[in-house]
Nucleic acid binder design. Structure first.
Lengths: 244, 244
DNA sequence: TGACATATATCTAGATTGCACATAACATAT
DNA sequence: ATATGTTATGTGCAATCTAGATATATGTCA
């Protein structure tokens, strides 16, 4: 493309530009199951369906920056936690109103932190996910309310959620992503529970322990958990600078 | 966000929208090395630097669709080959002229196909990549011309290239991505050469052969390569429906 | 026919994994 | 005090998988 062609193209008046948003798949593990923060829509389109929290990207705002702003604005929590770009969805028909390209992010927070969130909007709810694995690439996903009722998802958000879970599973054993779902100190049992929730399978305990310790990501603190009626487990923590 | 807030937001006149482009990392393996198709810029900014071929996303055009259109328009080849969304780059300063968010794609073609490309523009060139692996997450990448001269890359395109190579390496052993760089019939030696070019290491031959056959992706054709001065190797092909 | 280069098959040591079992640490009941 | 229940933690072993080396087969060419 020559500069002349480019100038013709990028003149803001020359043709309409799409809107660009970020959508957030904010996940955590609750009661041994994956859950995501969803927002109930009050208006058309997809009224009463659940949608991912999102927002427009400012004209002078970076994508990561926009995702973090949305996270802070919706949860009321200070910035922090795992935040990673997921995929960009741009089907022209994905929003019936106008052309919106959305850059999906996934964010991970331990339940302990998310529970402290002031949750700025009262239409936000942490919803349990029902995933159809492990049977490979299905990606079929659905959301269930507390009682077990099936919830409908707005737009292409079921597909986005499915992509997020797939990514999470894929990165589980070569990255420290699971630790973003645990508090600073945790037991090996906690860590295993997170892995099992994400993978949807149960794992062999001694083998899991060995594998985790062999990776060298974590170190024991010498402290032990409190309030058990049995032998307390040692508390571990992620070694510093094991970032991702 | 209520509908009222949304309407205020999405009125195209309300505030300026960013431009959205797709950029293409079109890679192949040539002489045992990774190479990418780059375009020499003739104008400001980054005059005489190399850039990824790209183009604007039409207002009613999907992202995959736009990437394929750009691919066809630049190479003159019919649609086909591997095309996969890579990552979206949106730093507000990445283009000094105006805000441009780019959705990067990577495309893979066997050299045999790419060599037949009419290459619509004469400022397009297949350039050998020099990658700084395998020493983990560096991602440092540079491009070299035929003679070995270092080439400068425009915008954030070095980062995009680095991300593409990382993704390629990551998917190598759990997807059939490597076969997108080979003709329909190939020997196990060819396949190993592609793997070695992508990973930047040399691999053990019997182990590689075993691993590939065990995956069940390929099948022998009974035919053998021609024109060797030694024992000809069997030609294999990817089984049908091993898509990705 | 024999030299040679490469494909293909076989062998073996090492690492990894799954599972069973033994022992340790704590609370609580007796 | 002592026994008991429960779970954490460590150990041992067999089965499986992996990498590398080595041997054999199969083609071309002089």
């Amino acid at each position: 493309m020559t500069e002349a062609e480019f100038l013709q193209d990028y003149d803001p008046q020359a043709f309409p530009h799409p809107s660009v948003t970020v959508d957030l798949v904010l996940m955590t593990v609750r009661d041994g199951k994956l859950a995501a923060l969803l927002q109930q829509r009050g208006d058309h389109p997809f009224k009463d369906h659940r949608a991912l929290p999102g927002g427009f990207v400012g004209i002078d705002e970076g994508l990561d920056e926009a995702a973090e702003r949305v996270l802070v604005a919706k949860t009321g929590l200070p910035a922090g936690g795992w935040l990673e770009q997921l995929y960009t969805f741009g089907d022209p028909a994905r929003d019936p109103r106008t052309r919106i390209i959305t850059v999906a992010y996934f964010a991970l927070l331990p339940l302990e932190v998310l529970s402290r969130a002031p949750l700025v909007r009262d239409d936000l709810e942490l919803v349990e996910l029902e995933v159809s694995w492990p049977g490979e690439r299905g990606g079929a996903i659905s959301a269930r309310a507390g009682g077990g009722t099936h919830l409908d998802l707005a737009f292409d958000h079921a597909e986005i959620l499915g992509t997020a879970v797939k990514r999470l599973r894929g990165k589980l054993d070569y990255s420290t992503i699971a630790f973003a779902l645990l508090p600073e100190r945790f037991t090996l049992r906690d860590l295993q529970a997170v892995h099992e929730a994400i993978l949807g399978v149960s794992l062999n305990k001694p083998a899991f322990r060995r594998r985790m310790l062999d990776k060298g990501w974590i170190e024991g603190t010498g402290e032990r958990e409190l309030g058990t009626s049995y032998r307390p487990a040692e508390l571990y923590r992620l070694k510093p600078n094991q970032g991702d």
